[in-house]
Design a binder for these strands. Structure first.
Lengths: 260, 260
DNA sequence: TTTGCTAAGATTGGATCCAATCAACATTGG
DNA sequence: CCAATGTTGATTGGATCCAATCTTAGCAAA
């Protein structure tokens, strides 16, 4: 990281002395929600590009950067206190992860989320997670199951909706972790992360009962007794239920008011 | 595309007047196999970055850029007739696709292929492709099945081992195409593309009978009669057989001679 | 008023330059 | 003679500058 503290801000948490209530040049599309994100990012990776990528990724998955938002390189560079170059490289990686849409001379936009994409994602999750769960169950230790139970409890007490997605991801990954297939697990985690955006969208309107904690408990129960078929059945039902609920939610929303 | 034909080569197929039998400065790590690839790439995308990405991707999947090969930015830039910048951005995207390993100040290396990764990949393929196939079968038209049969025939007559992987991918995708889940299909195709590297590795040592054309025919047959369960069973066996064969191949190779 | 064209501004793509990091080699002290 | 250390070359990370393209506002003609 070739950061020169004399001429530029350090790449870490820049203590938010960016530009307090001052708008640089008229409007600001990718506005100050970014500034909070930049300040929040605690541990900084080795390179500025990685830092930008991690920050933007977290922002998109957490919903701080909403779908459809334009990401102007110049603005981002100013807010991060960097040049446009690390921004561009980070955007490239986010594009390969399908988190943003990149058009040739038009720029980057946070990928839209639609019901079709959500159903697509549920199909992928169903296929991948049942496979991972089946492979993992025989190798799960009592310790693993204990951690899963703890996460269930955390979900019940967690107030921040933003952290619920993270905890949900953590719960599922704990149960899959012993599958012994690193690439499969990486894929599963990526899909679960994508799912965060839909989950938040849904949770913000409906209650936290959408988390289906009963299913979570049933999954741990079945895993504890090494009942692979039963556990898979619960997981499939869990995902199908979520898909149905989200479908109903979209139908209701679109039926009630034509939002754009 | 800000190509200036007077000072630089056009970005398309540069008619291979790069540097014929002349080595620029001593050695060349990412050597002239690249030159052929650059010249071969027919249609050129809009930007240089996309061109570089597509070319490198094809090179890696086709085996022209073998696993473990270091990709020096400077060398690539010279061979493509571009600056290092589009190279860097292309490498970023390839890294997000797990085709190369990127280390902070060390550079990019074509991802190694190992038996463990292959088994990982087989597990992923089994999960995703069975799901896609099941969704697609009810919607397959006679036309689709006809195309699948044609591809089977092509595989029988194709001599070039490099194209076999592509045809194999095409066959499978034809059967999955009506799943109606774009993101799922994109994922499946990406995994099949990754599989190309292992398939080639295997085919180069054993014969083309590794393609298991009987399984392919059985898959079309089951799909034609809308026998979803039967088709899935064949596909699972197909993938498991390939996994077992590759495992035996690795065991034999490692047992016979300790190749590095 | 509307439609088509033109030109200026905004924004991204690409090139070149400089700084930071890493690896290998030489050097010196034990 | 070996190990720790300084030094130099190679290579990547980041910044700045220029070129190409897209968008939009303005204007003219139908």
């Amino acid at each position: 990281m070739s950061q020169d503290p004399s001429s530029r801000q350090p790449v870490g948490p820049p203590s938010s002395d960016r530009q307090p209530p001052e708008r640089p040049s008229g409007e600001r599309r990718s506005d100050n929600t970014l500034a909070a994100l930049v300040a929040a990012e605690g541990a900084r990776p080795k390179t500025a590009t990685e830092f930008v990528e991690a920050t933007l990724k977290k922002g998109i998955l957490s919903g701080a950067l909403p779908a459809g938002m334009a990401l102007r390189q110049e603005d981002l560079a100013r807010e991060f206190g960097l040049s446009r170059m690390p921004i561009r490289e980070a955007l490239r990686q986010l594009e390969a992860q399908a988190l943003i849409d990149f058009t040739a001379h038009k720029g980057a936009v946070v990928t839209e989320i639609s019901l079709e994409d959500a159903l697509d994602l549920f199909a992928i999750r169903r296929a991948l997670e049942t496979a991972a769960f089946a492979l993992s169950i025989p190798n799960l230790s009592p310790d693993d199951l204990g951690r899963a139970v703890e996460v269930i409890a955390e979900i019940d007490t967690e107030a921040d909706a933003g952290r619920l997605g993270q905890l949900n991801r953590q719960f599922h990954m704990t149960l899959y972790a012993r599958a012994g297939r690193p690439k499969l697990l990486t894929l599963v985690e990526a899909q679960l992360a994508s799912y965060d955006r839909y989950l938040r969208f849904h949770l913000s309107a409906e209650g936290r009962e959408q988390m289906a904690q009963d299913d979570h408990r049933a999954m741990v129960e079945a895993a504890a007794t090494r009942d692979v078929a039963g556990a898979i059945a619960v997981l499939e039902r869990h995902i199908d239920t979520a898909a149905d609920a989200l479908t109903r939610f979209y139908a209701m929303r679109d039926g009630a008011a034509q939002v754009e």
